[in-house]
């Protein structure tokens, strides 16, 4: 059973890795976007799914990653890799400086506090000359979608392996304990402040790397698009759709929702976002704990699983 699952994951990975060699340009471009969204969902999974802190601040990490690459390449003429590292440094610094005060808040208060961060960052970056103010930065173009695709896929694998490691490490157990009962975790010896901040930073590292790759790929960034809050909403929807607090849930959620969204917007252009909204609402009602949980329970309870979820919603 376990061997079968590993084989399936490896097969899926092989297919994904081969896409740039048989797929069309459109498919590759869709793939890059979908893979980067999956990285974001997986990154959010660390702080939101495993630690239980619904962060709306991950789009800030994404923006910092974009600007790390943007500033390094456009202003300082440094290589891409240096830009990625710079972006990660910015994100980690931000996570530590703001995480310590903001992670004292719980539940809705934490969500609202982080929600404000993206707005603040847009305003700040718009006034920094090094970051091109509100005009933005133009990066040197690199016309190699295959490379960007494989880079994104590699990053997604790295993020997923990190989350897998969480499920069987002392650190990951500390995070789960915080999610399940923070006071209980504290009296059992978990340094909750340190662990939460580390989870926030780790989550930020992946968002920043995704932002960096995206910036180099699209070769243009401005404050509005780099610190776009709707991106944060997307990563949450995707992670929750797939199953927060599971290893593969956010990846499956991100890839399937990206595909649905792409299909809808090419088939029924005008009403696409409406249909997408309906898909999300229905998903939340009939499988509130995500695809991963649905698959696990469906085997035991069958169709009753959906009926029970609908009943608990009192519909």
């Amino acid at each position: 059973m376990k061997a079968l699952r590993i084989m399936l994951v490896l097969a899926a990975f092989a297919v994904l890795a081969a896409v740039p060699w048989f797929g069309s340009d459109v498919l590759i471009q869709f793939g890059i976007n979908a893979l980067l969204l999956a990285v974001l969902a997986q990154g959010w999974n660390i702080i939101g799914g495993y630690t239980g802190y619904a962060s709306f601040g991950n789009s800030v990490f994404y923006g910092l990653g974009s600007y790390g690459v943007g500033i390094a390449m456009a202003q300082w003429h440094l290589p891409f890799a240096v830009g990625l590292v710079f972006g990660v440094v910015l994100a980690v610094t931000f996570a530590v400086l703001l995480g310590i005060p903001v992670l004292r808040l719980r539940g809705h208060y934490f969500a609202i506090a982080t929600l404000a961060l993206a707005q603040v960052m847009t305003a700040i970056v718009s006034n920094v000359e090094l970051a091109g103010q509100n005009i933005g930065l133009v990066l040197p173009p690199l016309n190699n979608d295959r490379l960007f695709y494989e880079l994104s896929l590699g990053l997604l694998v790295l993020a997923t392996l990190t989350v897998f490691w969480l499920t069987r490490s002392r650190f990951g157990f500390g995070l789960i304990a915080i999610r399940e009962n923070e006071e209980g975790a504290e009296v059992m010896g978990v340094n909750t402040t340190l662990y939460k901040t580390m989870a926030f930073a780790l989550s930020g590292v992946f968002s920043a790397l995704a932002g960096g790759i995206h910036a180099y790929w699209v070769t243009f960034i401005d404050p509005e698009s780099a610190f776009d809050i709707s991106l944060n909403v997307k990563m949450i929807i995707m992670a929750v759709f797939g199953g927060p607090g599971t290893v593969l849930g956010p990846v499956v959620g991100a890839l399937s929702l990206s595909a649905i969204s792409e299909f809808l917007s090419s088939e029924i252009t005008s009403l696409a976002s409406l249909f997408f909204g309906i898909v999300v609402v229905v998903a939340v009602v009939i499988m509130p704990r995500g695809l991963a949980d649905m698959l696990r329970r469906f085997r035991k309870t069958g169709w009753r699983y959906f009926a029970e979820n609908i009943r608990t919603h009192r519909l």
């Binding site: 500390g174 789960i176 999610r179 209980g184 010896g189």
Partner: peptide, 24 residues
Amino acid sequence: RPFPGLSVLDNVAVGALFGHGGGH
């Protein structure tokens, strides 16, 4: 206040991982 989503075993394992002296 157990950790509700964890198995009974893992609830207790948290104590062994973090407790006295920093745990295992």
